[in-house]
């Protein structure tokens, strides 16, 4: 593991692969704006309609700074649509959304400047190599020490041997690693990540889960969308359950007590189906 990665961008104390003596700095990359907010993400009455289908139905939720918030739901429940709306990739049919104090409808590019995003499908440009893609992201995001950061991520996610291979020739797992790296390479205060673990093997899942836990402990926020309940229960501090575009439940993982998340999830979803 490389030791010269700028410590201000890592969470080395939480990551077993990184020495723990260099994690204390909280220096912010130049150019990043970090508004002093408690609520980092706020959706009010957010709605998205595709023809006859209401993909997201009047959803109101907020995410606080330092949370690892899980958005849970079965396939097609509207999780990815929520992330797309919150990052200005698609426009809501109704309601409003603010991310880090920015209205996503009036300044979607401003939102994407500040946050990190892992989209639903891993789509790095086909004819760039993995290293070129991270350079590309660095040039777009104006990250001065992109080479150093990229080298750290190649080492950390263990795909340095693939850095000169074209993205179209990478396996799904390696593409997922690349998308994970691009989302965190500028050390965003908030990351919105859609099924980030689905293509990883158990070892890499463990590495990434620990990284995310450390990341929020450093004061950052992660908004994670997944349908894998075990992962959500293990790492999320708070969660919301979405079904057919409607918000069924919001609560803290700690409040589950003896109950398990899958029990709560199944009872809520099945109840909703009967309704």
């Amino acid at each position: 593991m490389q030791d010269n990665y700028p410590d201000r961008f890592s969470c080395r104390d939480r990551n077993p692969h990184i020495s723990s003596d260099v994690h204390n700095s909280t220096e912010i990359p130049a150019g990043d704006v970090k508004p002093a907010l408690t609520t980092v993400m706020q959706a009010e009455d957010l709605t998205k309609v595709y023809g006859d289908l209401t993909a997201v139905d009047h959803v109101t939720l907020s995410v606080e700074k330092g949370e690892l918030f899980g958005l849970l739901g079965p396939n097609g429940s509207g999780k990815s649509t929520m992330i797309k709306m919150m990052t200005g990739q698609i426009r809501p049919a109704g309601g409003s959304a603010h991310v880090l104090g920015i209205d996503v409808m009036t300044d979607p590019v401003g939102v994407r400047k500040l946050v990190g995003i892992i989209p639903e499908q891993e789509t790095p440009p086909s004819f760039l190599t993995a290293a070129e893609y991270l350079d590309f992201v660095g040039a777009i995001r104006k990250i001065p020490d992109i080479g150093e950061r990229a080298a750290w991520w190649f080492d950390f996610l263990d795909f340095a041997d693939k850095k000169d291979v074209l993205c179209k020739d990478l396996s799904r797992g390696t593409r997922q690693k690349l998308m994970f790296a691009q989302a965190f390479i500028h050390t965003p205060e908030l990351a919105l990540i859609d099924e980030p673990l689905i293509n990883f093997d158990p070892i890499m899942q463990d590495v990434v889960k620990k990284y995310l836990a450390g990341y929020v402990k450093d004061g950052n926020t992660v908004f994670l969308s997944t349908h894998i309940l075990e992962i959500a229960e293990e790492i999320c501090s708070r969660f919301a359950i979405l079904h057919k575009g409607r918000l069924l439940y919001t609560g803290a993982t700690a409040d589950l007590g003896d109950r398990h998340l899958d029990g709560l999830f199944l009872s809520l979803v099945q109840k909703e189906r009967h309704v």
Binding site: K84, T87, Q89, P108, V109, G110, R112, K113, G116, I117, I118, P119, Q121, T123, P124, P125, S126, V137, I140, R141, M179, Q182, A183
Partner: peptide, 13 residues
């Protein structure tokens, strides 16, 4: 073969 999807996670208008 360069859809906007590839840029959706970046600050590119």
């Amino acid at each position: 073969f360069d859809t906007f999807g590839a840029y959706a996670c970046l600050p590119v208008s």
